[in-house]
């Protein structure tokens, strides 16, 4: 792909750059590391922006829900802040809020100042350039002007070259980082799957979880047994039970000697 800016370059400089690119080996440590870092930052920033956007939306909604109606209607933000400070009554909270407020207001101020500076710059350029035009036509100024134009062209060429490299490298960096991430995760899981102690742990955890679920269900059904029985006995006007009926000792002994499959499994696990 021909860079539009490179047409303004001296022919030998452009040829040298092409030669460097073509001669560069396919794998260079530093380049790959740079790509990895750039790709990582790119992916991280993308992820961060999308999360931040989501969090901001949720937070705004939550704040609106939490604020009393009086604060939402007809009270200025500054006044809202004052109300909040008075409500908290703690010096530490007040200081923290003041700090946060200062940071955000500083950010607003910077943004405003930058915009102002840009506007002022454009205004100055507009008003000064008609005055400078006759001066630029003077023969004495011409060499300096040529030199200045050359510098500008070189700067533009550099910028265009950076953009082109950035365009090419961003994509390969992202691909490299994505691949590095997915392969690392795969390798990690392979390691986990191959590791006998981890496998045992997962197995024990799964069985333990199943046992816990069964136990929870049993507990609830036992409670429900008594509860429903109480209601049924109430309907039939029978005396409510104050204790669960106990069978004969022979039956109880039998129950103790006959452990269920679930309990045997649990004991084995322990």
């Amino acid at each position: 792909m021909e860079n539009p800016a490179s047409s303004q370059l001296p022919a030998d400089a452009s040829a040298d750059m092409n030669q460097i690119t073509q001669d560069a080996p396919l794998f260079v440590h530093s380049r790959s590391l740079t790509r990895l870092v750039v790709g990582g930052i790119g992916l991280f920033m993308d992820e961060l922006w999308s999360r931040l956007e989501e969090w901001e939306t949720t937070t705004d909604r939550q704040v609106r829900e939490m604020l009393p109606a009086a604060q939402q209607d007809g009270i200025s933000p500054a006044r809202k802040g004052a109300v909040g400070v008075r409500e908290s009554g703690s010096a530490v909270v007040t200081a923290r809020r003041a700090m946060i407020g200062m940071i955000f207001q500083a950010e607003d101020n910077i943004r405003y100042s930058v915009a102002q500076a840009g506007r002022i710059g454009r205004l100055i350029e507009k008003s000064v350039s008609p005055l400078l035009k006759p001066l630029a036509r003077l023969p004495l100024i011409k060499p300096a002007k040529r030199r200045y134009d050359q510098l500008v062209a070189r700067g533009e060429m550099e910028l265009a070259s950076w953009i082109k490299t950035g365009e090419e490298q961003e994509l390969s960096s992202r691909i490299l980082m994505t691949r590095a991430l997915s392969e690392t995760i795969d390798a990690f899981f392979d390691y986990l799957a191959a590791n006998p102690s981890v496998r045992d742990l997962v197995q024990t955890q799964s069985t333990g979880l199943a046992n816990e679920v069964v136990e929870e269900v049993r507990e609830r059904t036992v409670s429900a047994d008594t509860f429903l029985e109480g209601i049924a006995r109430g309907i039939f006007r029978k005396t409510p039970r104050v204790e669960v009926p106990a069978p004969s000792p022979e039956v109880k002994i039998k129950a103790a000697s006959l452990r269920s499959i679930h309990q045997r499994g649990k004991k084995r696990l322990q």
Binding site: E219, S223, G230, P247, K252, A255, L258, Q263
Partner: peptide
Amino acid sequence: YVIYTWEARPDERFLSKE
């Protein structure tokens, strides 16, 4: 008879209600 073979223990939160 049908009996519990495990150390059946009612759920305490539930039991307090009942």
